[in-house]
């Protein structure tokens, strides 16, 4: 029944969007915005909790237990606490940049999720060059990270800012080349087109090297361990977030999980056939795939030691870049030529 009603909702949404009436168009977009916010907040909240619980299990601890059943309300309590705290802006900060840095990053990451299609009918837009748009937005990320780190005037944040540039140099190019090989394979930059190109075989089977490169670069993009140089808590205290207090810190937590949602979604879309799958509705398939990838990303955090930033650059240029090129060439030779 639920599935049926959601289908009817989606078809209503579609008819609104395709009708020429501008009011209906706006209503449809607002409805989609609400839908995305629900997905984002549920995912962010649940993964904030799940990460704590899973890591606690690996580390022979219990994790949150007191607030709510299985500590499910712990993150809510934390956010309320953070919002109630005093918001301290350091004297050394550039007030304007300090104010816009994190919100801009949050906006970009929400936009990134917004661009991705959730099902054949459930998408905000169907850009012809969707993948390219994603790439453009992604390359804004380190820029704003640099801005927000640099604006605090903290030396630890400064080191973090320098590291973010170094990181960008090391992972951006391999990632771009993998994007290119995906586009080559699906003969276009349209994201829906990429998913329909995988209706017979997932791209992960066609270019496993590309997937490995993409996964590693995505971990770096998301700043997840072992590439968490920017927030390296045992070295830089909290890196670029050192001087962000109260509400901004809460925002940074949401940002973390929003970016993780985007990372898992794009991996599911580019390599695991996106929404395609039997029986269940497409959006459920996409979310199942994204959740499995997210869990994998979380488990990696519990086991790996942080790399060193200078090794990261070497790793990016000596291993990732050649591997991504090899992947591109193989893709061209085998599947296109």
């Amino acid at each position: 029944m639920l599935i049926g009603s959601s289908y009817s909702l989606i078809s209503t949404f579609n008819s609104w969007l395709s009708s020429g009436n501008i009011l209906l168009n706006i209503a449809a977009l607002i409805a989609y915005g609400i839908f995305i916010s629900i997905i984002l907040s549920v995912y962010d909240y649940l993964f904030g909790w799940a990460e704590r619980k899973i890591i606690a299990k690996v580390q022979l601890r219990h994790g949150p237990t007191y607030v709510g059943k299985f500590g499910i309300l712990q993150n809510l309590a934390d956010v309320i606490k953070l919002l109630a705290k005093e918001h301290i802006v350091p004297d050394t900060a550039d007030k304007f940049l300090y104010a816009i840095g994190l919100p801009a990053m949050m906006a970009i990451s929400v936009l990134l999720v917004l661009v991705l299609p959730f099902s054949p009918y459930l998408q905000a837009t169907n850009l012809t060059l969707g993948l390219l748009f994603v790439l453009v937005l992604l390359s804004f990320m380190p820029l704003f990270m640099f801005v927000s780190a640099y604006s605090t005037g903290n030396k630890f944040a400064d080191i973090s800012a320098q590291r973010s540039v170094l990181m960008m140099l090391s992972y951006e190019l391999p990632m771009l080349i993998v994007f290119a090989s995906v586009a080559l394979l699906s003969k276009g930059f349209n994201i829906s087109g990429i998913i329909s190109a995988q209706s017979t075989t997932w791209f992960v089977w066609l270019m496993p090297i590309g997937f490995i490169v993409f996964f590693v670069t995505m971990l770096a993009e998301l700043e997840r361990p072992p590439f968490d140089f920017l927030e390296a808590d045992s070295e830089l205290i909290a890196g670029w977030l050192t001087d962000y207090s109260a509400p901004y810190y809460a925002l940074s937590l949401f940002l973390d999980y929003t970016r993780m949602l985007f990372g898992s979604l794009i991996m599911a879309i580019l390599f695991f056939g996106g929404w395609s799958g039997p029986f269940l509705p497409p959006i459920i398939w996409l979310l199942i795939k994204a959740v499995i990838i997210s869990l994998f990303i979380i488990i990696i955090r519990t086991t790996l030691v942080r790399m060193r930033i200078d090794r990261m650059l070497k790793f990016g240029w000596v291993w990732m870049l050649p591997l991504s090129l090899v992947n591109l060439i193989i893709t061209y030779m085998v599947f296109i030529h």
Binding site: L60, S234, T302, V305, R306
Partner: peptide, 12 residues
């Protein structure tokens, strides 16, 4: 812990 292996080996 110091080399960034967030508490796993530490807790064990």
């Amino acid at each position: 812990n110091d080399i960034g292996q967030l508490f796993t080996a530490f807790m064990w």
